[in-house]
Amino acid sequence: MLNILFWNLGKNAIEEYIIDCIIEKDIDIAVFSEFEGIDFEKITMNLGKFYNYVHWEGQEDRKVTLVAKTTFGVELVQQQDRYNIYNIKTAVKDYLLAAVHLQDRRNSSTADRLETIRYLVADIEKNEDLLKCDNTIVIGDFNANPYDEELLSKYAFNAVLFKTLIGKSEFTNPRSFKRKRFYNPILHYISENTEMYGSFYYDRDSITSYWHCLDQVLVRKELADNIVQVEYLKKAGKKELLKNTIPNKQISDHLPLLVNLQEVENEN
């Protein structure tokens, strides 16, 4: 099992929460955004009591960063202002992992995010071709919901919300406009029964106060059947991340996203 965590930290120094979350969920790869002020040396030292972890880069002018177990090979193959692309090698297979933090939806337009996405998708396609790797994962804060243009448009992520669609065809308009699709599994896991509503609660305007699914994961067709669980975590260890039923902003205004991926070797 490959356990991946994404957490927008809200620029809060919450090292103890991060450590508890990584230990409890046996996280293999942890991606963070808004990580300014976080002491990653403290995190990796404390995690060293259980596994050896390494922090791959921590420039505070970047939007995303990564912590991973040293049992994995990790190479940063592309770095831009809003995203990093990594080549991850496990004992089972190679992956491309794109870590993303797109422009804030309250201060930027859809057009701003779409422009970034087009560059990102082009870089993903380039690296898929160079590395001969289609096991691609995109994870992060998209600042867009699953049905927004940024996710659905064939000129953006080109993500489908139902696995049967990507199972039938991994391309959109294969004869005229051949664009490879992503699969977005989030709708399968949103549920009132499990009280998994979203990762971010917008409450500045009482007319539009509701949960948003801004933190998401996308995968190529090759990994669509390998997703075991996608979950917004409400606790880090025994520590509650909610206050009055919404994210405690003193910890973070986003809930962490946990993705469990079954590792299966690709068929030749």
Rank of each mutant, 00 (worst) to 15 (best):
K126N: 15
Y83K: 02
R105Q: 09
R106G: 09
K69L: 11
F157V: 09
I137E: 00
T90I: 05
D81W: 08
T90D: 07
Y83P: 05
D104H: 06
K154T: 15
V160T: 06
L102E: 09
D94E: 13
K69A: 02
A144K: 06
T116P: 03
Y119N: 14
E170T: 07
F157H: 02
A99Q: 01
G73Q: 09
Y119S: 14
N158R: 02
V77C: 00
S108V: 09
L131V: 13
V74Q: 06
A68H: 04
L120I: 10
V160G: 00
C133T: 04
V74P: 01
D148W: 06
K168N: 12
I137M: 00
N145G: 09
A111P: 02
L96W: 10
G140R: 03
Y147P: 06
Q80W: 07
R118N: 14
I85D: 01
F72R: 02
K163W: 06
T65C: 14
S153P: 03
N145M: 12
D94F: 13
T90H: 11
G73H: 04
V100A: 06
K93V: 04
L130P: 01
D104E: 10
Q79V: 08
N107L: 15
A144I: 07
L76M: 15
F142A: 03
I117F: 02
S108D: 06
A144Y: 08
R82L: 12
C133R: 00
N143H: 07
L102Y: 00
L96Y: 11
D123H: 03
K168E: 13
C133L: 01
G73N: 01
A111G: 10
D123P: 07
N135R: 06
I137F: 00
T110V: 14
V160F: 04
K168R: 10
D148T: 04
Q79L: 14
L152D: 04
V138L: 05
K163A: 10
R118I: 12
I88S: 00
A68G: 09
R113G: 04
N84G: 09
F72N: 01
Y83V: 12
N143I: 11
N158I: 01
